[in-house]
């Protein structure tokens, strides 16, 4: 693509664009039905997670007698008890914080790696780009969950391991997306202008390229968070979670391995999964709506 054709467009500088767009994007997001539902749900979950963290210990205390095990929902125990007599209600409340924390922290790692690879690869181009994208494609091809299971099984058990393992296995798709975006930005006027006045590549990337890809990075990060929360639940369900903490996936593992399914104890099976679904859905809705707002070509008109 020749630069001359785009000069007439007179693109504003990167920082101005991103700065002015944020409130407008939020407004547009709110006006999409999906965005509104997602944002409300998300706010509810954040409050729930913080409240649960402050109100209860993780893990909640076990029941005192054998009769406390698998109690059906009642006035004393709103959602009954699990195989160790622990209140399902309390476990749900402490699990929210774990899901949110793992989702956000793992995504932060993935986005950091992904944007570094994507921006440098797209900006430098040439052989470096070929090489970096070769590795990125490899990471996209290698099935993520089996890789995560292997890593989590070999490394020491714990929340940090899970966060790092999910983070370092999910940067490839954002890297590809960001690179594509950078390629489309690279020949724009304001970048060429910055080059012409002698700005250094790193400076240009930081002040001009990054703000312009911020929107797409954010939208993708929100979707990644949804995926990370699901992955954490799966790992906990497979017994690869932090053994000392209760999370929603761990609750389902306890229920499954103690035979609650065959016994038909729905109260230990339905609530955790429902909350995982709703939390993941809230991120998915916001991420999906945001993608459409940023990229109007895909909007349902």
């Amino acid at each position: 693509m020749s630069a001359e054709g785009i000069v007439a467009e007179g693109a504003p500088t990167g920082r101005d664009r991103a700065g002015n767009q944020a409130p407008a994007v939020l407004g547009q997001l709110w006006r999409t039905g999906r965005g509104k539902i997602g944002l409300i749900l998300l706010a509810v979950f954040v409050v729930y997670g913080v409240a649960g963290y402050l109100a209860y210990e993780n893990p909640p205390a076990a029941g005192e007698t054998v009769e406390d095990r698998f109690r059906a929902p009642s006035v004393d125990y709103l959602l009954g008890t699990d195989n160790l007599g622990r209140s399902v209600w309390e476990q749900l409340a402490v699990g929210a914080g774990i899901s949110l924390a793992v989702g956000v922290a793992a995504t932060a790692i993935a986005v950091l790696i992904g944007s570094t690879v994507g921006i440098t690869s797209g900006y430098i181009g040439g052989r470096f780009d070929q090489f970096a994208m070769g590795i990125t494609d490899m990471f996209i091809t290698i099935p993520a969950l089996p890789l995560i299971i292997v890593l989590a099984a070999v490394l020491s058990r714990g929340l940090p391991t899970i966060i790092v393992v999910i983070g370092v296995t999910s940067w490839a798709v954002p890297a590809r997306l960001i690179r594509a975006e950078v390629l489309s930005q690279r020949e724009r006027t304001f970048i060429l202008r910055a080059k012409a006045i002698g700005m250094r590549p790193l400076q240009i990337m930081w002040t001009h390229v990054l703000p312009n890809v911020a929107g797409i990075v954010l939208a993708n990060a929100i979707l990644l968070t949804a995926a990370a929360i699901l992955t954490e639940a799966v790992l906990a369900f497979l017994g690869l979670g932090d053994p000392s903490l209760i999370s929603w996936g761990k609750m389902l593992q306890n229920a499954f391995s103690s035979g609650a399914t065959s016994l038909g104890y729905w109260w230990v099976l339905i609530p955790p999964g429902l909350l995982i679904t709703l939390l993941v859905l809230s991120f998915t809705l916001v991420g999906n709506a945001l993608t459409d707002v940023i990229d109007p070509r895909r909007r349902a008109e």
Partner: peptide, 24 residues
């Protein structure tokens, strides 16, 4: 709209939990 919403909801389901629910 409703098909898109349904699709997003289905994507948000943890697979293992869907299995548990179907068994139940």
């Amino acid at each position: 709209t409703s098909l898109t919403l349904t699709a997003l909801t289905l994507w948000s389901l943890p697979t293992f939990w869907v299995g548990l629910m179907l068994v139940l």
